[in-house]
Simulated assay, not measured.
Amino acid sequence: MTATAFVKPINGTDLYYEYYQHPSSRETIVLIHGFLSSSFSFRHLIPLIKQDYSVLSVDVPPFGKSGKSISFTYSYENMAKTILHLLEELDIDQATVMGHSMGGQIALNIAYLNPVGVKGAVLLCSSSYLKKAKLHLKMSSYIPFFHHYVKLYLSRSGVRKNLQNVVYNAEMINDEMLFGYLQPFLDDEIFKALTRMIRHREGDLPPEKLQKITTPSLLIWGEHDRVVPLHIGKRLNKDLQNSHLVILNDAGHLVPEEKPEEVHRHMSNFIQSIS
């Protein structure tokens, strides 16, 4: 199996992606990470998935190794369109999208925009029903050097504290995790892009749009998710026409890190069921 890592100009930004092409499988799984994360969060899951399927893992702008342009529109719809442009460039006509947290909302946008091209959606603790930023925060983002406030706000919480909030068992946090989640934020340019994201991020897809999505969907939720609580997953399961909810015991929000084998098993069974 060949693996490629590229940074490619797509939709007005530099898009980083890792592409593991399976020698015989026709199935492609597109991995979309969450907020303040990158493809790093799938490092335990990719080796499992690539045994049977092609895997395309994307760093959503401005995160990870993707561009941090101050001219890119950081809305979920535009992020979804950027990934769709990449799929077109790679001649991938149909794929299963797997999104974690914010990545789940982007996956839902992809399914809404291009239902024919999405065979299935695997939503890991997916962001749902989140409103757009309040007007005063959006207006504040136009203050010169506001990105310094964004950096200060994120640095106060710190990587370790953020990780402790997203996992059920904090003992699993090690130096590899700490450095992996910290590394993208060593580049100050990301804070300017995050300032633009405050302005551009629309609210999550409303119920009337979710109810129009007919894509087969598997919802995988951590029982103890404190970021996107389980009741959100149950509500999303009701709004999506063709969905099934799986609850992972002894897991929080970061299920690709906490339960990669279980996520892989449920994902594989799901793909077989829709093939």
Rank of each mutant, 00 (worst) to 15 (best):
K119M: 05
M1V: 13
P256H: 11
T96N: 11
S268I: 07
L163R: 10
P206S: 11
S24F: 11
Y149F: 10
H100P: 07
G99H: 08
G34F: 12
I83H: 10
K119P: 05
A107M: 08
K212A: 13
V246D: 03
G117K: 01
P144N: 00
D225R: 13
N174E: 09
H100A: 13
R156P: 01
Y149G: 00
H224P: 01
L186W: 00
E261M: 10
P144F: 00
E176A: 14
E257M: 13
S141A: 13
M79A: 15
D188A: 05
H253A: 09
V246Y: 10
L152A: 14
W221Q: 11
R196L: 15
F191L: 01
Y149R: 04
E171Y: 06
L218Q: 12
V97D: 05
L87P: 03
L45R: 06
S37D: 11
V159E: 02
T73W: 05
V58M: 09
I83F: 13
G34C: 11
D239V: 02
S66R: 09
L45G: 04
K238E: 15
H244P: 02
D14L: 14
L205P: 09
H244T: 12
L45N: 08
E257T: 13
V7D: 13
L230K: 10
D59P: 04
L36S: 14
L108K: 05
Y76D: 03
L152W: 14
D187A: 05
